[in-house]
Amino acid sequence: MKHPTLRLQYNAPVTLSLFFLSLFVLFLDRLTGGWTTLHLFSVYRSSWAAPLFYVRLFGHVLGHAGREHFINNMLLLLVVGPPLEEKYGSRTLLGGILCTAAISGLLQCLLFPGTALLDASGIVFMLIMLSSLAGMRSGSLPLTLILVAMLYLGQQVYAIFFVQDQVANFMHIVGGLCGTAFGFMVRKQ
Rank of each mutant, 00 (worst) to 15 (best):
C109Y: 03
P82K: 10
I103P: 03
S47C: 11
A181C: 15
N11H: 14
A49P: 01
A102V: 13
V79H: 02
P142W: 03
G105F: 04
P13H: 07
E85I: 09
L75H: 01
G66L: 07
F41Q: 12
A50M: 05
Q108M: 11
A134P: 00
L153F: 12
I160L: 13
A149W: 05
F41V: 13
V167M: 10
S104M: 07
L107E: 07
L40G: 13
F27M: 12
V157K: 04
G96W: 02
M150E: 01
P113H: 01
G175P: 10
F41K: 12
S47Q: 04
F41H: 15
S121V: 04
Y158H: 09
R137H: 03
I71P: 07
G175W: 07
S22L: 10
V80Q: 03
I173T: 12
I146H: 00
G175R: 06
M126P: 00
S47T: 06
S22E: 08
N73E: 11
Q164A: 14
F182Q: 06
R187C: 06
V25K: 04
L18W: 08
L75R: 05
G89N: 12
I146L: 11
L18C: 14
L26G: 07
V25I: 12
D29N: 15
A181H: 03
E86L: 13
S46D: 13
S138G: 00
L130S: 03
H172G: 13
A149M: 00
L130Y: 00
A134Q: 05
I173R: 12
S46W: 01
L151Q: 05
L78T: 11
A120I: 08
M185K: 08
A49I: 02
H3A: 12
I103H: 04
G176K: 10
L40C: 15
V163Y: 08
I128A: 03
G139C: 01
V14D: 07
A181T: 11
G179I: 08
Q156R: 11
I128G: 03
G63W: 05
L62W: 04
V124S: 04
H39M: 10
L151K: 01
I173V: 15
G96L: 03
R137F: 00
A134H: 04
D29G: 14
P113D: 03
N72L: 15
L145E: 02
N11E: 14
P13M: 10
Y44D: 07
T180I: 08
G122P: 08
I103W: 04
R45S: 14
G175A: 11
L141D: 00
M171H: 15
S17F: 09
S131V: 00
G175K: 06
F70W: 15
G183K: 04
I97E: 08
K2Y: 08
L141F: 10
L117G: 04
I128Q: 04
M74N: 11
F53E: 01
M136V: 02
H3G: 06
T115A: 11
E68G: 07
R187N: 12
L78E: 14
N73Q: 12
M136H: 01
A116D: 02
A102L: 13
A159F: 01
